[in-house]
Nucleic acid binder design. Structure first.
Lengths: 187, 187
DNA sequence: TTGACAGTATATCGAAACGATATATATCAA
DNA sequence: TTGATATATATCGTTTCGATATACTGTCAA
């Protein structure tokens, strides 16, 4: 499951350009679970083309540069199915916001509050964005992804809202390693 | 917020070796939000050493090769605080499991069920793991991260359990692009 | 009417991270 | 005694990230 498979998967839904492939995963309910940049997609498409897993037709356009529309080949569909039959790797996530909160004792309170507030908004915006997607008529896989995304974002937003005092208040218990630093540090 | 900052943050909690730094983020409530491999940590420590943001003392050990214990310098602490004062990047996550479900119409039902079941277990195990961490005496930042991790994992596991039929049943509505393929494809 | 801005579309580059692997030793259980 | 697990450092090739360049279109306001 790398960018090559992601492109194959996108093309299994219909022919597309590299730009459109990015849009598929950028918009809609899916962007929260996987995304890839052009720096990954275009090289991936070139490799797929070299391996005859996709074909490409250049469509000339008036004025604009030609667009390259990619299509899945039979071999490409087989390769995709083979890849989907593998065991998925465990989820990976990277949250700089939470990492910063982890070291919250080194941050000034106003900045902590600022980060936390924009983090809450980030999840609330995510909820709104997902809710605006109409699931009717979509295949089950996409309905499922939409629902899961919504459930997780809602849970995160709610937790953040209900527990923000935990981060905004000063440490009282614990932090035995840093007691000296905390008391002596006003920078 | 890259691996260098992650190492500085770890060292702000106390001196450590590269191996121990990995352990800090691998175990405990934090592993779900950020992790780094040795292929990132050791080069990061070398760069930090070159920039005088950390110091290193080699401790000889009987039999075993010498261990390198790193310590944060004043400049290192300043650099960490400077980095923490920046606006965090938005969360990134990559879920191969959900990506596979997104293309679920190409998967055989037993395999779909298998992936889904191990995905549920993955989140339930995650919940158990987090619940086993005693939050008492820990600084607020870590208590917060623990609670958020638990809330999100719980929400994901619950959603998966309650909606798995959505993936295990066949598509009835929608999928207008693939109708021909679906009906003609039993491979 | 022009100029700024957003959108469409392809492409590349250096830096960073990933995943696997190698090395060496100790300990503990089957 | 074989195998597994833990401690500990390190590298290597591949992949991905993020930023940027190019170039044309449409649009909306000053």
């Amino acid at each position: 499951m790398d960018t090559k498979s992601l492109c194959l998967g996108a093309l299994s839904l219909g022919d597309a350009t590299g730009y459109e492939i990015k849009k598929i995963f950028e918009e809609g309910s899916f962007s929260h679970f996987y995304d890839a940049g052009y720096g990954s997609i275009y090289p991936a498409l070139n490799k797929l083309l070299a391996d005859n897993l996709v074909t490409c037709i250049e469509i000339e356009q008036e004025g604009r540069p030609a667009k390259k529309v990619y299509s899945l080949t039979d071999a490409g569909l087989a390769a995709l199915k083979a890849d989907l039959s593998k065991k998925p790797m465990r989820d990976k996530m990277r949250s700089e916001s939470i990492t910063m909160m982890f070291f919250g004792h080194l941050l000034e309170k106003p900045h902590r509050e600022e980060i936390l507030q924009s983090y809450i908004e980030y999840f609330r915006d995510g909820c709104d964005c997902i809710e605006n997607i109409d699931p009717t008529g979509q295949p089950n896989g996409r309905r499922f992804a939409r629902g899961l995304g919504l459930a997780v974002y809602e849970a995160a937003a709610t937790y953040l809202e209900e527990n923000k005092d935990l981060l905004l208040s000063d440490d009282k218990a614990g932090a035995e390693t840093n007691v000296a630093e905390v008391t002596g540090d006003a920078a």
